[in-house]
Design a protein around this nucleic acid. Structure first.
Lengths: 205, 205
DNA sequence: AGATAATTAGGTCGATTGTCCTAATGCGTT
DNA sequence: AACGCATTAGGACAATCGACCTAATTATCT
């Protein structure tokens, strides 16, 4: 067991967290619809009856998973903001997700993008909540571009970078081409430098 | 009825085509897994039993749908090649899909990209066949870039453009923002001009 | 027209889905 | 020790899934 609480039984909140963590991973790897109650319960090691005690509907689990991702994303972005001083460096952290997570991305795509697409096709009530995950990155990136002296088009630049990362993830999954990821990440980094008005790049715009 | 064959009953091949066309649309709009035999049969107006006469498994339908899309895509690319002389113009045709299909894209994403992602998550046997749809565009675009004098990096440029269109489609679905699509399409067109060595652009590379 | 093949309709199969219920167990408090 | 509450296990529910079969109908050919 990985939770490190073998000595005693779990509180309801802890069990709930284990369920949400398992659902998070399974929704990402297999998709929301393709993941059943039984799949999650088996993954956590619970009976389906016990599972129902914590979550009564599948929509409830989805909401909890999205909430968990929101929280994790907020934490991640805060850490990036603390670790790096320069906005450009922070943005590079975002771009490097594609490299760091390349294996999982080539297998299952981007967790956020694929969830949004699936929920859109299902016309699911939570599709706007899932899109909020994108908004988190969007606003954070826009703030970094503002700090880079591009306040006027910060949101457009943020969307552009998000767009690129989504495109790279999608094609990386289809072609399973790691070199393609590295090449496009390098291109994004070059693009980023070109967007920096006061940067060291001798390129004139 | 839209098939214009009311006067007589349909041959097996015609019924089969209707099934594949309906499955094509439903797989796109709702997703592969979320579309059932009954959904397709009802859409075409057939009984499930009759349906089974034409397709014995769901994988068979998927293969037929992919085959249909392959054929349609080949035809589309050939027409683009016939309608336009200049490679740059042809590439613009590709980019303009995002504008022409913006409504459906904002609802259900890109037909090719979303299918590839879903099949990847299901670890479906046909995922490589679906990726061949991308290859069709990839090779066609690479030929156009070669004709543009960029034979050396034609494939990389083709993948880059594919990547952009995928990214735009994904974010357009999540945010349902038509202005975003138009802005990114304009950016892609500007990028395309910049890639043309003999173009009017005074940019030196 | 009659025989043969192609096509269709309707029903059924076991498995799985999300959802729900009840009985049993664990645990802290008195 | 006994109570009360939180948690769990295991089964059961109707509905739906992909898949399959058979009988009836229609079309085609001799």
């Amino acid at each position: 067991m990985a939770h490190g609480l073998e000595g005693r039984s779990l509180t309801a909140g802890e069990t709930r967290s284990l369920i949400v963590a398992a659902a998070d991973r399974l929704f990402y790897e297999r998709g929301y619809e393709a993941t059943s109650f039984a799949d999650i319960a088996e993954d956590v090691g619970l009976s389906r009856g016990n599972f129902y005690y914590h979550f009564r509907t599948k929509d409830e689990i989805l909401e909890a998973v999205i909430g968990r991702r929101m929280e994790n994303t907020r934490t991640l972005l805060e850490h990036w903001e603390q670790d790096s001083e320069a906005p450009a460096e922070r943005i590079l952290r975002f771009v490097d997700i594609l490299i760091a997570n390349r294996s999982k991305i080539m297998e299952h795509g981007c967790p956020v993008g694929t969830l949004c697409i699936e929920l859109a096709k299902l016309d699911h009530a939570a599709q706007d909540d899932a899109a909020e995950l994108f908004t988190l990155f969007r606003d954070w990136l826009a703030r970094q571009f503002s700090g880079l002296g591009r306040a006027a088009d910060a949101d457009a630049l943020a969307l552009h970078l998000l767009m690129r990362s989504q495109g790279v993830a999608a094609l990386a999954t289809a072609f399973r081409d790691e070199n393609f990821i590295r090449r496009e990440v390098a291109d994004m980094e070059a693009w980023l430098l070109a967007q920096c008005p006061a940067a060291t790049a001798p390129r004139s715009n």
